[in-house]
């Protein structure tokens, strides 16, 4: 059933052919440009926050890959506010399907396939370029870390989108945590300081998406003196984020009182 919904969306999007093609190319260029932006900083500075370019690029590409996967699957949750405002959510609620899967299937972003592929390629480049001293544990981590990152960002998308139940024009607010989180994780945590680092890095958990797994892959001790095992925490943090997001989502759906008419 969901497969049919997704397929219908694909057919619809492919109707405007030229625009769809530009879309595919454009969204994949976005990843490249974001990563090039990181490299531009290294054109000027030799290291950022004490990390040379190959180490920082590993973290940035890890974050980009995780984010691209999450955006591909869950990025359109912010359409929720549109569905609430127009009352279309009521129609979704009476259908014998989950609301969240319907929402995701309805505007499934096929044009982002290129983005995921390109982020994956960037991650491979990042891994090979960073001189990782491979062992079985690190191989496992290199596979798990982007998936955990994807789950984490996906949780952010869902939690951020859910805010629309209470606050219709909340899209930009959610962007601060989703796209803001992506940019935050693209740079070593040591770049930030003060309350901002504590809030985004530790309280919201963004430090565990790319920074700590990156340190563990590189075999580098944390300049902020965190224990070594933090590098392996990203799946746990992702799971916690997913649980929190699903709790927020369920609370939001139950709270929903329709727009009335």
């Amino acid at each position: 059933m969901y497969v049919q919904l997704v397929r219908a969306t694909l057919r619809g999007q492919a109707q405007y052919r030229l625009s769809f093609a530009i879309d595919v190319v454009g969204t994949s260029l976005a990843v490249t440009i974001d990563l090039l932006a990181v490299l531009v900083f290294f054109r000027v500075a030799r290291s950022l926050g004490g990390f040379p370019v190959r180490q920082a690029f590993l973290m940035a590409s890890l974050a980009a890959f995780g984010f691209a996967m999450a955006d591909f699957v869950a990025g359109k949750v912010d359409r929720l506010r549109f569905n609430i405002r127009t009352g279309r959510l009521d129609a979704m609620l009476v259908r014998p399907l989950g609301v969240l899967p319907q929402l995701l299937a309805e505007d499934f972003a096929f044009r982002q396939v290129g983005r995921v592929a390109q982020a994956f390629a960037a991650y491979l480049i990042g891994l090979s370029y960073a001189h990782v001293a491979w062992n079985p544990g690190r191989v496992l981590l290199a596979v798990v870390a982007p998936l955990a990152g994807a789950v984490f960002f996906g949780a952010m998308f869902v939690a951020g989108g859910t805010v629309a139940f209470w606050w219709i024009e909340s899209a930009e607010f959610a962007n601060g945590f989703t796209y803001g989180g992506r940019d935050f994780t693209s740079y070593p945590l040591t770049v930030y300081s003060g309350l901002f680092r504590r809030l985004f890095g530790y309280s919201l958990g963004f430090a565990f998406v790319a920074y700590y797994p990156g340190l563990a892959l590189l075999g580098r001790p944390d300049p902020l003196r965190g224990p070594v095992w933090l590098g392996w925490c990203s799946p746990v943090v992702a799971l916690l984020a997913a649980l929190a997001a699903s709790a927020i989502w369920r609370f939001g759906v139950r709270h929903y009182r329709s727009t009335g008419s």
Binding site: F41, V44, A45, R46, S47, L48, G49, W167, E169, S170, A171, E172, F173, N175, G176, F177, G180, D183, F184, Y187, V191, Y192, S193, F196
Partner: peptide, 23 residues
């Protein structure tokens, strides 16, 4: 909402660019 996001990104970019300008 937009103001909030502008400020979040402002902090983010400010730390990154200060790290560049500092070195």
């Amino acid at each position: 909402a937009g103001l909030f996001t502008n400020v979040v990104f402002g902090f983010l970019r400010c730390y990154v660019l200060l790290a560049v300008a500092g070195t």
